[in-house]
């Protein structure tokens, strides 16, 4: 007579303890932060873990640490908490807007920035904004701590660069130039409660003469992972936002797309709208930099 296996739950208080549990159980263990993706996947029987490791008991995963140089956001900080953080909102409004687009008000109270990253959806809203910001992902594992640029973290739909025994503890946003701004926009067929058909994150820094000092553009939902549009940096740097620059930017975004046809959008639509959103996001980021 067969039997059904039980599901276990652990809530360690140190990163080392998490690493030990992960290393002991292997892939049947899952990290549990907000649970807004994990529990849904379990409910839909897409995954059937035997151990859930809750990381919210580890202080560093729950803190937002602001210094003159950088901002460190714990992996288990929720969207609602980010949205209430005035310093973060004023320095990185695009990132906060991106995280706040995830789910409903109720989901915002649970969903975490680390979870959005680790779920590794190509359409994750926070990721293009983090890539545009040149954020780094801090990873704890059996060999200690390492850091990875946000654009290198996901390696395919649902897949990350995390090795056995590793998990994300926090995300670090770098020091900004004086006149810089960021923005994130997504396209969905509704106004809320949906997943990006296209996402565009932009971060722009300006020179004193009003030309672009540096810029980064990233797109979501148009390739197996969110990706940086490197050509956009060259197009913008040293220039002003005129029609020619915007047209070149839209084309660079179109060219960077390698989307699929699926239930959320067509290749044709995603490619075209990626150019539209790229220009709109850069315009907003530029405006914010000017207003600094």
């Amino acid at each position: 007579m067969g039997t059904v296996t039980e599901l276990k739950y652990e809530s360690p208080e140190t990163a080392q303890a998490v690493v030990a549990l992960l290393s002991g159980v292997g892939p049947m263990a899952r990290i549990f932060a907000g649970g807004t993706d994990l529990l849904v996947q379990m409910h839909e029987e897409l995954i059937e873990p035997t151990l859930l490791i809750d990381i919210k008991g580890i202080p560093e995963t729950r803190e937002i640490d602001v210094t003159a140089d950088e901002i460190r956001i714990g992996a288990a900080v929720t969207g609602a908490e980010l949205g209430e953080h005035q310093e973060l909102k004023s320095r990185w409004p695009g990132i906060v807007e991106a995280v706040e687009l995830i789910g409903s008000y109720q989901v915002q109270g649970r969903a975490t920035i680390g979870g959005n990253l680790c779920n590794a959806s190509p359409a994750a809203d926070s990721v293009p904004a983090l890539i545009a910001a040149a954020a780094k992902v801090i990873i704890a594992g059996p060999n200690g701590t390492r850091e990875v640029p946000a654009e290198e973290f996901s390696v395919g739909p649902g897949r990350t660069c995390l090795a056995a025994g590793e998990f994300v503890t926090s995300i670090v946003l770098p020091k900004q130039n004086q006149r810089s701004g960021d923005a994130y926009l997504r396209f969905i067929p509704r106004t809320e409660m949906d997943i990006a058909v296209v996402g565009a994150g932009a971060c722009v820094s300006l020179n004193d003469d009003g030309t672009c000092a540096s810029a980064r553009l990233a797109l979501g939902a148009v390739a197996p992972t969110a990706k940086r549009v490197a050509a956009a940096t060259d197009i913008l740097q040293g220039n002003r936002l005129d029609d020619g620059v915007l047209a070149a930017l839209a084309k660079a975004a179109n060219d960077a797309c390698a989307p699929i046809d699926d239930k959320r959008g067509t290749i044709e639509f995603r490619t075209k709208v990626a150019g539209v959103l790229a220009c709109r996001a850069v315009k907003i980021a530029w405006q914010r930099a000017e207003n600094r």
Binding site: R190, D194, I195
Partner: peptide, 12 residues
């Protein structure tokens, strides 16, 4: 599910 079966939400 309602994620991809797109009924309007209140803000729509």
């Amino acid at each position: 599910g309602f994620l991809d079966y797109r009924m309007p939400v209140a803000s729509d």
